[in-house]
Amino acid sequence: MIPIIGLVIGVTAGIYSGFSIPYGYSAYVAVGILACMDSVLGGVYANTQKEFEAKIFLSGFFCNGVLAVMLIWLGNQLSIDLSIAAIVVYGARIFNNLSKIRHFLLRGRKAEEK
């Protein structure tokens, strides 16, 4: 519950800070957001499995974000639209994680393990 409050606080702070990303970089940030969302949901899922580890979660969050952005950048240099790949992969993983979390919430961990 607290993380959700944190998320709301973060979004509010971000909007009211008035900061914005320079033109041309927002595509990178968009993919970064996707990667981060995947990491967060992955963390939530890991927690449901009692496998959550702060180190893995934190490193995963930052590495995924940075890696995604770097891949997109590389794709842009080589004229390959890798953002589509990132969107597909991270989108699929997000849905996957969400469905696992939903299973857990509906059936409990034991049912999941079965």
């Binding site: 606080i9 973060g10 509010t12 702070a13 800070s17 914005s20 981060c36 959550f52 702060a54």
Partner: peptide
Amino acid sequence: HQYSIAMTAICILFGIIIGVQYNTV
């Protein structure tokens, strides 16, 4: 405890990024 702290911190950061991106859009 660890989970709550880490997740909250990340969520705040994540939220800020989303907010900034929203501003940009």
